[in-house]
Computed example of a mutant assay.
Amino acid sequence: MSQFTRRSLLVAGTAALTTPRLALAHKVTLPDHFNPTAVQTGRTDWLPGEVHVVPDEFHLFLMGLDGAAIRYGVGVGRKGLYETGVFTVARKAKWPWWRPTQSMIRRDPGKYAKYKNGMKGGPNNPLGARALYLYDDQGRDTYLRIHGTNAPSTIGSAVSNGCARLTNEHVKDLYDRVEIGARVTLHPKVTTA
């Protein structure tokens, strides 16, 4: 488990109190609760600098001090593809390269086979403007990402292949606030719908 410095904890705590002004940065109007908002979670067991994805609420929380957080709206993995667990942000990328997994190609070859050799980063790339790469405790890439999307209307729904997605504008803000080594918890779904 990565140790945070005193400075990184203070920065994370301060960052959580500073709400980004991104509500009107994209063309799709999101419900207010999906725009980045400073909130008090009441969760003192969620530590500064950690990221928590709560799939039933379609929210991601970047934690600050004493339960303060920035709450972002997200889209999550569709039924059968959302994976729970605790992970580590092992790397980050701007306008990341993308290649569908073999499972994605098998599930929907008509959609994904043409990208089997990958796709360079850019506005049409499914990972969007930024990506946080989630690794397990053994240092292995899980192929789970927190990333942007060029389909902001999918925020607040379970449509992805397992990753958590934010609007490109919101993921740029999150990317600048999350450090390599940050712990990410993808909480279980409580509802089955």
Score class of each variant (00 low, 15 high):
Phe4Ile: 11
Thr5Gly: 02
Arg6Gln: 02
Arg7Phe: 08
Leu10Phe: 11
Ala12Pro: 03
Ala12Lys: 14
Gly13Ile: 04
Thr14Phe: 07
Ala16Glu: 05
Leu24Ile: 03
His26Pro: 00
Lys27Gly: 13
Pro31Trp: 01
Phe34Lys: 10
Phe34Gln: 14
Phe34Trp: 12
Pro36Ala: 15
Val39Trp: 02
Val39Arg: 08
Thr41Phe: 07
Thr44Tyr: 06
Asp45Val: 12
Asp45His: 11
Trp46Phe: 13
Leu47Thr: 09
Gly49Ala: 06
Gly49Trp: 09
Val51Gln: 01
Val54Met: 06
Phe58His: 14
Leu60Tyr: 11
Met63Phe: 09
Gly64Glu: 08
Asp66Asn: 04
Val74Ile: 08
Tyr82Ala: 03
Gly85Gln: 12
Val86Gln: 10
Lys92Ser: 03
Ala93Met: 12
Pro96Cys: 15
Trp97Ala: 08
Arg99Gly: 00
Thr101Cys: 10
Ser103Ala: 13
Met104Val: 01
Gly110Cys: 02
Lys111His: 03
Tyr112Lys: 13
Ala113Asp: 08
Tyr115Pro: 00
Lys116Glu: 13
Met119Tyr: 03
Gly121Met: 09
Pro123Leu: 06
Asn124Trp: 02
Gly128Ser: 07
Ala129Glu: 14
Tyr133Gln: 07
Leu134Gln: 02
Asp136Ala: 13
Asp141Thr: 05
Tyr143Lys: 15
Tyr143Glu: 10
Leu144Asn: 04
Asn150Ile: 12
Ala151His: 11
Ser153Glu: 07
Ser153Trp: 04
Thr154Trp: 02
Val159Arg: 14
Val159Asn: 07
Cys163Leu: 14
Cys163Ile: 12
Glu169Phe: 02
Leu174Asn: 10
Tyr175Phe: 05
Tyr175Asn: 01
Arg177Trp: 04
Arg177Met: 02
Gly181Met: 11
Ala182Ser: 15
Arg183Ala: 10
Arg183Thr: 15
Val184Lys: 10
His187Arg: 13
Thr191Leu: 11
Thr192Ile: 13
Ala193Asp: 06
Ala193Asn: 14
